[in-house]
Design a protein around this nucleic acid. Sequence first.
DNA 1: CCGACTTTGTGAACAAATGAACGAGGCCGG
DNA 2: CCGGCCTCGTTCATTTGTTCACAAAGTCGG
Lengths: 226, 226
Amino acid sequence: MGRTPSTREIPEATVARLPVYLRALQEVAGAELATISSERLAEMAGVNAAKVRKDLSYFGSYGTRGVGYDVEYLLFQIRRELGLTHDWPCVIAGLGNLGQALANYGGFQDRGFVVAALIDSDPAKVGTKVNGVVVCHVDDLADLVADRAISIGVIATPGAAAQEVADRMVAAGITSILNFAPTVITVPDEVSVRKVDLAVELQILSFYNERRSGQTGGPSGLENAG
Amino acid sequence: MGRTPSTREIPEATVARLPVYLRALQEVAGAELATISSERLAEMAGVNAAKVRKDLSYFGSYGTRGVGYDVEYLLFQIRRELGLTHDWPCVIAGLGNLGQALANYGGFQDRGFVVAALIDSDPAKVGTKVNGVVVCHVDDLADLVADRAISIGVIATPGAAAQEVADRMVAAGITSILNFAPTVITVPDEVSVRKVDLAVELQILSFYNERRSGQTGGPSGLENAG
DNA sequence: CCGACTTTGTGAACAAATGAACGAGGCCGG
DNA sequence: CCGGCCTCGTTCATTTGTTCACAAAGTCGG
């Protein structure tokens, strides 16, 4: 058991919002006053103020009544809670369009996620470099993961290959997977998976769009659904 | 009011799952039997069977008891429900790493989302072609949207530019926005926004990862959280 | 035509998440 | 030191979403 007060169960919905608060706080850090109210933070994060207060209360974070939250302290708390006090080495599998874009994307490194390895099954790609990192063959996955203490895997392969890559990642000891392939992958319970599917997002938008044009006069759609 | 039985309010959570069902159905279409059970569909979509049945029941879709759902008919229903009976022209704003990858990504066109226009604010990029489409200046946005009947905008700019681009899109008449920029954007109520943030996803994974390693013996994380 | 077997559709219990409301606790001006 | 003011932390009612469990409705073999 950790020594932190954070052992209390934190709701999934709250966890998903912490990164958003984090970003907002980073934006005001230094520049503005040293404290921020739940109201202001809520506005920046695009949520309700009561929600912010409740979310933050889960890990016993002290704001000061009448004043607000100390920005620096809150930043520290959220970072600690999210496990961002150290870097996370990641491996990206599949260096097609998307994989390469991800490998080149600065926003990763910025936020403590280091591209520690790249893998692909195409021999033509193996040995080339992307953003300074050598592409290895998928067979070397296990070694790479062990050597470089990688715990996060990003799947950017075509759908057909996703499950196999996921299996290999799990076998290699990876515990968290971010899946961009347009397929549902199955993993053991103790592995976390999150899925990002561009086409799905567009189709959801399409639904509300269609509704709008269909029902004359009845607007309203959805708000920032993350 | 439409003539379909689908005017009943469909829960947001259900809408978000329809594209997943759609994909699963496309996979079995033709190849296997002409019908599919809720159980099988649930397995493919990575959800609970009861959920599938309830979801499908919202738009009065007829399965046949004792048999299952007719794959082709269900495909048609879901497509219609999602407004995928016609193509949707989209505009992508911001042709950095991610924007270019998106423009080149086949999975879009495949599913009825046509990249009808590309825009950027960098004069050096204007006039070049990406995947056969000419990059235009952001000032031409309004004209492009009007000319090409664009209703979906994709923001792939740096965070700092996102809000302004969103404002311009809204002004130009776009009603749905997919936001990849790491910023919360504010739009009028009648515009739908969905946000995809890679760093946020990784940070969520990081949270559960940290938890796992922190609490010896207490595994469990989250399942395919969409 | 009947009875066994499947699988849907849905009512109801349960769980999670939200948002409003308000008391408690702390600052500040006088 | 005190009263007014601000903002957090928490409680509660409501809404939304999930899951179970079972009757209804259909198929199929004989």
